[in-house]
Computed example of a mutant assay.
Amino acid sequence: MTKRPNEKNERLKRRFLEYRKFARQLSDKSLDKELTALERFDLWNGRKDFAKFHVQWAMGFRDHLERAKTKTGQPMSKSTARAIMTTLREFTLWLSQQDGFRSRIRASDAEYFNLSRRDEAEARAAPARPAPSMKQALRALEIVPATTPREMRDKALFGLLCLTGIRISALISLRLKHVDLDDKSVTQNPREVATKFGKSMHTFFAKGFPEAEVALRAWITHL
């Protein structure tokens, strides 16, 4: 049976996440992942008071992650384990700087939340993601219908994706004013477009996709 949350631990988690959000400028999505990592560690450790931290906890948790399985029964990926350990390392480092913890936790204790060198190298070696070739993308553009307004929109969006390689979250938040057909470019204003890390970007169309430009122009003209 799962122990009830430790109120002291919960308050520390909340303060840490506030620090990460406002001082480290993490997104809500990243904060959710960090909260999940903290909760996983807290549950594994039986909700013991963080103030009683010992490096044995970190070493035991690393062993736990090495044996952990996913919902499908597969071993946890090294990249996932690395992300969890990174959160715990940052949390421990933050704790070592808080009043009431400086004499109990040293900054060097955070280093125990590290994977082995082999696992760290495996976590960093991200496998190449499969992607369609230009020939496949052109073929898809060719067969996508554009007889109704919805089909015109879909083809224009797919065309813009081919032309710019823009992130999906940014693509669906673009406005007409961000697309310059004459300049063959897209301006991603982070105040209005969901760009990664809130960065401003100016992207020019890739060559080799004339049908994509035709579809994009047709949709903008229709609007």
Results as ranks from 00 to 15, higher is better:
Leu115Met: 14
Ser108Cys: 11
Arg82Ser: 15
Glu120Trp: 01
Arg104Glu: 12
Arg124Tyr: 05
Ala125Leu: 11
Glu151Met: 02
Ser96Gly: 08
His64Trp: 08
Ala146Arg: 07
Arg102Cys: 08
Phe101Trp: 04
Ala58Pro: 07
Glu142Ile: 01
Ala83Phe: 07
Ala131Ile: 13
Glu66Gln: 10
Met152Ala: 03
Leu174Tyr: 07
Lys155Cys: 03
Ser79Asp: 13
Arg118Phe: 06
Ala121Pro: 05
Ile105Pro: 07
Gln56Lys: 13
Gln74Ile: 00
Asp99Gln: 13
Leu161Ser: 15
Leu171Tyr: 10
Ser173Val: 07
Leu65Trp: 03
Leu138Met: 11
Ile172Thr: 14
Ala146Val: 00
Arg104Phe: 08
Ser169Trp: 06
Gln98Phe: 07
Leu157Asn: 03
Pro149Leu: 09
Gln98Met: 11
Asp109Ser: 13
Pro145Ile: 04
Gly165Ala: 04
Lys69Ser: 09
Glu90Ser: 10
Glu111Gln: 13
Ala170Glu: 14
Leu161Thr: 11
Cys162Gln: 01
Arg129Asp: 10
Asp109Pro: 02
Cys162Leu: 05
Phe101Leu: 01
Met76Trp: 02
Gly60His: 00
Leu138Trp: 03
Arg153Tyr: 01
Val144Thr: 15
Gly60Tyr: 00
Arg129Pro: 11
Phe101Asn: 01
Ala68Trp: 00
Ser103Asp: 15
Val55Lys: 14
Ala137Arg: 10
Glu142Phe: 11
Arg150Thr: 12
Gln74Trp: 04
Ser116His: 01
Ser133Met: 05
Ile84Ala: 05
Pro145Asp: 00
Leu138Gly: 13
Leu95Val: 00
Tyr112Ala: 13
Asp99Pro: 08
Ser133His: 05
Tyr112Gly: 01
Thr148Ser: 06
Leu157His: 00
Arg62Leu: 09
Arg106Ala: 14
Ala128Gln: 15
Leu174Phe: 12
Asp99Met: 06
Ser169Lys: 13
Met76Arg: 07
Glu120Val: 06
Asn114Thr: 15
Arg118Tyr: 09
Ala58Lys: 02
Asp119Val: 00
Leu141Lys: 02
Leu161Trp: 10
Ser108Thr: 14
Gln136Ala: 12
Ile168Cys: 15
Leu65Asp: 04
Ser79Cys: 10
Ser169Arg: 12
Asp154Thr: 05
Asp109Thr: 09
Ser79Asn: 11
Phe113Ala: 08
Gly100Ala: 05
Gly73Arg: 04
Ala110Cys: 01
Ile172Gly: 03
Asp63Ser: 12
Leu157Cys: 02
Ile105Ala: 06
Leu115Gly: 04
